[in-house]
Design a protein around this nucleic acid. Structure first.
Lengths: 158, 158
DNA sequence: GGGTGAATACTCGGATATGGCCTGTCCGAGTTGACGCGG
DNA sequence: CCGCGTCAACTCGGACAGGCCATATCCGAGTATTCACCC
C-alpha cells in the first residue's frame, strides 16, 4: 500500500508553482522533472477539481496556485490525488460473524476499525499540520538559491 | 490508496485465535466470516512468514498464535500483510531537477520526503501502540460473551 | 495609423489503451491419526 | 491384549488464472494571440 506517483509529482509541482506568479503549462512543469506530460496533466486536473490549482486555457495559459501557499496543507494535496477514503479498508466482516445483530454499523463499533481510524487520523493530522509555505521556508533556508534556480529553469524551458 | 482486504481478515482472525489454544485450520477460520478459504490461507501464510502465526500440517493441524497477544501489535499484522514499505512513494524526482548534485540521497534530504516520513511514523506509532491483547480487553469489556461465542462457533464448525 | 476580423497556435480536459498488483483458485507435498493385522 | 506397519484423510504451501485500478497516451474543445486587411 503506497501512494501513487502522482502525489510526489503534485507536491513538488505545487512547491515550484509557489515560486512563480504566472500560469505555467503542463509541458514546462513536466520537463522540469522529466515527467510524462500528459500524465502529469491528469494529476494536475485532480488538483484543479480540489480547488488547489487554477487552470487557464490557450496561449500563455497553464496552472497556478489558487491561494496562498500557507493555506495549502500537504493533506490537501495528498487527498486531492488519492481520494478521500481512509487508509484502512473496513468491509465489516463482523456482520458475517456469530452473535452479531443486524442494524449495527460495524464501521463505528468494531474495535479494529476504531483503532485503525485513530492511526489514520494521526497520519492526517501530521499532513494537515504542514503547509506548502512551511516546506518553502525549509527549502529556502537550506538552499537560498532554490527559488531563483527554479525561476531560471522555468524561463529556460519556455 | 487503501489497505488490502487481507489486513481486515488477518486482524479479526488473530483476535479469534487469541481466544483459542489449539490449532485451527483455514477452512474453519474462513467459514467464521464466510471468507474464501484458499485466499485467507494465502494471507495467513504471510503471518507465518512474519512470525506471528505457527502452522501445523496434517489432521488436527492449522494455525495458532506464536506468542502472547500482548506481544503482537496491530503494526505487526499490518506490516506482515502489506509489506515493509512506507506509505509515501518517493522516486527522488528531485534528482532530475536543476541545481542538484549527484551523490545525494534525496530520500533523506528532500523536505517532502521528510514530512511524509514523519506522518508515516505517526501512523506506525499509533498502530504499534495497540496490541491484540488491548483489543481483546476492549471487546471483552463491551461484549463479555464474545470469547465463549467464538469458541462455540469454532467448535460448531469443526 | 488604428481598428477589426479571421486564422492560428497553444493549452486544458476528458475519452481511450496498457500493465501490474490485488484477488481468487487449484493441486501437490508432507504429516498425523486411525485402522487392521500379527504376535 | 498390545505393538507395529500400512493406509487414508487432512492441512499447509506454493504455483497458476482473472479483474480492477494505477499508469500512460491521444485527440478534440476552447481561448488568447497574432497577423493581415480594410477604413
Amino acid at each position: 500500500m503506497r501512494t501513487s506517483q502522482g502525489v510526489e509529482w503534485a507536491l513538488h509541482t505545487c512547491l515550484n508553482l509557489s515560486w512563480l506568479d504566472a500560469p505555467v503549462p503542463t509541458g514546462i512543469l513536466a520537463a522540469f522533472y522529466e515527467l510524462p506530460p500528459a500524465y502529469l496533466n491528469k494529476q494536475l486536473q485532480a488538483l484543479v477539481r480540489a480547488g488547489i490549482l487554477t487552470s487557464t486555457s490557450g496561449p500563455r495559459g497553464g496552472f497556478q496556485l489558487t491561494r496562498d501557499p500557507g493555506e495549502i496543507s500537504l493533506l490537501d494535496i495528498v487527498a486531492a490525488i488519492e481520494g478521500p477514503e481512509e487508509l484502512f479498508r473496513c468491509d465489516r466482516i463482523l456482520s458475517k460473524g456469530p452473535g452479531e445483530h443486524a442494524g449495527v454499523d460495524y464501521r463505528q463499533s468494531c474495535v479494529f476499525a476504531q483503532a485503525m481510524r485513530g492511526a489514520d487520523l494521526a497520519w492526517r493530522r501530521e499532513l494537515a499540520g504542514k503547509t506548502v509555505a512551511d516546506v518553502q521556508a525549509d527549502v529556502e533556508h537550506r538552499h537560498p538559491e532554490s527559488p531563483a534556480n527554479t525561476r531560471a529553469r522555468i524561463a529556460e524551458l519556455r
